[in-house]
């Protein structure tokens, strides 16, 4: 379970997050929705211990990320792109990530296969297409067989086949009891996938709950999104 408890983030004079509180439960796919600049990435970075909250806290199974030993066996994440240095090959990147968490070397080949990058294993990360970079990021997230997956706009750059593939992957991860938290701008993109929605606008959670409860009373998913985030329709 991932919990956000009154997370506030100030950058200079601006408050980027104002008391973000929600949970992502095991066995469910939670979609974190909001327009550009709403604070989705900022929230996820705080969960992953990359940025420090001004106040409040974010916990992974009740513990701060920074307290996790070998975190990749507990939670896998993809922020933007592959997260690999551009002059390293996919295999080299995954090899150091695996070693850093004491993950057996054979997992590298397994995850490359799982994300469909076996043939591109020796290609430098800088030469991978946008979608292939996303797949490499996902491969790194899957290395430690974590129970929780956190993905910032995972569909970005994927082709239709890739989108269908990642949806199935995330669904089955949740159905096996895992926790999935993913961000997106598009309600339609997550409608078939998500169990729960958390909608954020201007640094504040404006709606949270099961998908049908959050979207109830709106003619279309798009209308729901605009109504909740206060955007033009």
């Amino acid at each position: 379970m991932l919990t956000f408890d009154d997370v506030v983030k100030r950058r200079g004079a601006r408050e980027v997050l104002s008391g973000v509180t929600f949970r992502a439960e095991p066995g469910r796919v939670t979609a974190f929705l909001g327009p550009n600049g709403a604070g989705k990435s900022s929230t996820l970075r705080i969960l992953l211990g990359l940025d420090r909250p001004t106040s409040g806290r974010a916990l992974v199974d009740g513990r701060p990320y920074l307290a996790l030993r070998r975190p990749l066996g507990v939670i896998g994440s993809v922020l933007d792109g592959s997260g690999a240095h551009r002059s390293r090959s996919a295999r080299q990147h995954l090899a150091w990530v695996a070693r850093s968490n004491g993950i057996p070397r054979r997992r590298v080949g397994e995850v490359l296969e799982q994300v469909g990058l076996t043939d591109a294993a020796r290609v430098r990360a800088g030469r991978l297409s946008l979608g292939m970079g996303q797949r490499l990021g996902l491969a790194a997230a899957l290395l430690g067989k974590p129970r929780a997956l956190v993905l910032d706009e995972p569909v970005n750059g994927l082709d239709p086949e890739g989108i269908r593939w990642i949806r199935r992957l995330l669904r089955s991860h949740a159905e096996a009891g895992g926790t999935v938290l993913l961000s997106s701008h598009l309600m339609t993109e997550v409608a078939e996938l998500a169990d729960d929605l958390v909608v954020i606008a201007a640094g504040q959670v404006v709606a949270a709950g099961p998908l049908d409860a959050v979207t109830a009373g709106h003619p279309t998913l798009e209308d729901a999104f605009f109504a909740l985030t206060g955007g033009a329709s």
Partner: peptide, 10 residues
């Protein structure tokens, strides 16, 4: 490629 996020996540 801002590998730093991968490094500190791991």
């Amino acid at each position: 490629g801002r590998q730093i996020a991968s490094t500190f996540a791991a």
